[in-house]
Nucleic acid binder design. Sequence first.
DNA 1: GCAGACTGCGCG
DNA 2: AAAGCGCGCAGTCTGC
Length: 844
Amino acid sequence: MTQLQLIRDPDCALCKLCATADKICQMGFGNPRANVMVVSKMSNSDAWQTELESQLSDVGVDLDDVYWSQAIKCRTFDQDASNADIKACRTYLDQEIEQVKPKFILALGNEALLATTGRSGITKYRGRIHDRPDGIKVIPTISPSAVKRSPGQLPGYYADLRLFVNQVLGRKSGIRKPRYAIIDDREKLDILKRTLPRVKDFCFDIETVDDYYQKTGKIVSLSATCVLDDGKLFVFALPLYHPESPWRKRWKAVLEYLKPELEALERVTAHNGSYDVKWMRWHGIRMRFTFDTMLALHLLNENIQKGLKPACQARLGVEPWGIDTKYLLDKPLLAILEYNVLDTWYMYHLKLQVVEELAAQPMLVKVFKFVMMDGVNDLVDSEMRGIYIDVERLIERTPIAQAKLEEIEADVLEKAGLQKDGRLLTPDQPDGVEDWPVAKVLKTRGPVYSTPNLNASNFAKWMLFDHCGLPIISRGKDKPDGSPGDPSMAEDVMLELRSSHPVVQPMLDRVEWQKMLSAFLLPYAELYDEDHRIHTNFKMAGTVTGRLSSGKNDEDKISVGKGKVRGVNLQQVPRNPFIRGLFGAPPGWSFVECDYSQIELRIAAFLSRDPTMLQLYRMGADIHKSTAATVLGIPESQVSKDDRKKAKAVNFGFVYGMGWKKFIETAFTKYQAVFTEEEAKAVREAYFRQFDGLLPWHGRQRNLVNKYGRVQSPLGRIRHLPDIYSPDKEVRAEAERQAINSPVQSFGSDLAVMSMVEINKRFRKLGLAGHCVGLVHDAVNYEIRNDCLREALPIIQDTMEDMSRLERRFGVHVDIPILADIKVGTRWGDARELTREEVHDWAA
DNA sequence: GCAGACTGCGCG
DNA sequence: AAAGCGCGCAGTCTGC
């Protein structure tokens, strides 16, 4: 003990915390020879310590064998510890570890994770075993205080604690490992082929190298845990492309051999099956899958980690398993097969659990089936098909944008009074002048540009705020060391400075062109395939509300730039026809976009029961126009197009709880509309007088989330909002606003997905040549062969607007009209909106 | 050279 | 009294 206390430095000033700490540099306590060290963020209060001890005791930790320590040795609640503070403090913890020599460390919270492993990101690393260079095993989990704030985290937290104690006691997991058949000769392959028709549930997983659409893409193995018609389990591993595999040269033929049986499977289960199914379809096996454990987990709790491994560890208490899948072909085949099998084995057990939980909530089962599973299977088609891009236009427009950008940048430098060819700012920059140039550039380790970097870089900030002398209106976040953040170059700031200096306007202009090039034109040029199509990756579990997210695969995010990697976000294609008009339909086909008209506002009317909104929608009135008239205090007939646009900001903002302050801000940045404080307050008041059902609805949602910690969409989708239990009232208020928005957004998005599924179904039934190429929250995009337009257009619009399926499936009666607008053209950006008559009489 | 934090901006 | 919501990605800078 004395030895340990010697580590302490009561005069420590390595970080800023000592300024407010009630006791500086406090060491840990407990058994100085313990096998187990528990590291918290700071020293715990007595109450916390008692609770923590009882939790650990619950799962079987011997409290006499524990040394209790902290990442931060100074205890203070007046300021937050930054990563730098934690790192500074590590010296004491390291010495403690050195002296105590524990075999296992339980790290509670991100601070403790950082202090014991040097890694940051507790949600990523929790529940995994980290081997320190000194041989000590660290198991991180979330902090007990996070669990207090979010009681939904409790099961996962306890699972991590159990994993920890199992490691300490050398215990194995609850689920025994399976025996499985390795299909490595013709006879076994035939047995498999004969067995597949008896399979009632096929829980499968594949191991792969590279991407499915590349020539180098191979399926290394396929495994499944199968439930047979007699209820027995059959587990197999089929080696495919691997140096040690008997099928290494015939792996595609093997798949082809099993194709009829695989395609006939009744129930197919996978974890993130979109991935596996894409591979199978690419290799000619037209599989649909019926149960995705990842999507089920997401539906049950949108806030938790959805990976197979963390989920199984948390729910089944199994030990971490797995191999490094990076250079799969160099790994021993048997290890791969074992890993592959375990994935399916645990997936099967996971499914047993989640099926039970879903079954207890019949509404969720329907969302799962009709929105998620139906949706994800159709989205796989859309992703694989891709969206057609007009390569000629792309090639033509890219240099236009580049030239425009160069021109603007030259203008910027000229207006700033700088030379255009580099960092030299004034002629004959003498050495030692305290200016931007060489000295400062060389001090930073970033790239040294031959031309100035006018993005929000140090150079640009120097140019605007030092060289041109613009006032600093707002700054970014404070630096970790407490110094003030960098001056902001955000759009609203620039807009405000526009009149102060001629350099500002071209700076504003260049942002738009820079973004177009770097975020759209250049990536598109890299990503289109030989059929001139661009592919995205839709995630059904990518958002907390049930919306889809779109973009690259997670794995691909790292390797982007190292070659052609698929995946572009098709939900953020600029509305500007210069970009949006690049997408469209191939020759002979048309691009059709059908989007719900003001869907979220209609849903807000439906849910809030606001009489005025309901009335307006039932009359077919233009609610944005009406709002414009109300807030501007003018008759509707005098509302201009611009006024209507402003009213959109009003509607969408106020419906979800925006205050007058934020309203002034968004009205200015988004619509260049200037409101004074009084005007903004008056507008807000007028708005809620006009729609006097909205605030009571907000109140109802607030009550619900306060009472239950969650809210539900009309279809039963649940949004868990544990932040409502936060001691911080701003955090609670945020949860309340989310409680208002969530059911609306959720319902709207489920409507769009179900419409897509139904449209696809009807197209298939009628044999129409029309394919969904994307879904943008409240809009579906289709490519339709021209000769099918006549039949297809009314189907699309009618299906979108038809709410009778909802009534039949969910018993939800939508009592206001839901309308969808339809646009047809050869290109997305150029498409023309059709009247109802035109939709139903396209031939003309 | 990589990873993470942060800003800023594209979409609904 | 005050409070929009939901995403993904490019780019910069910093720490290691």
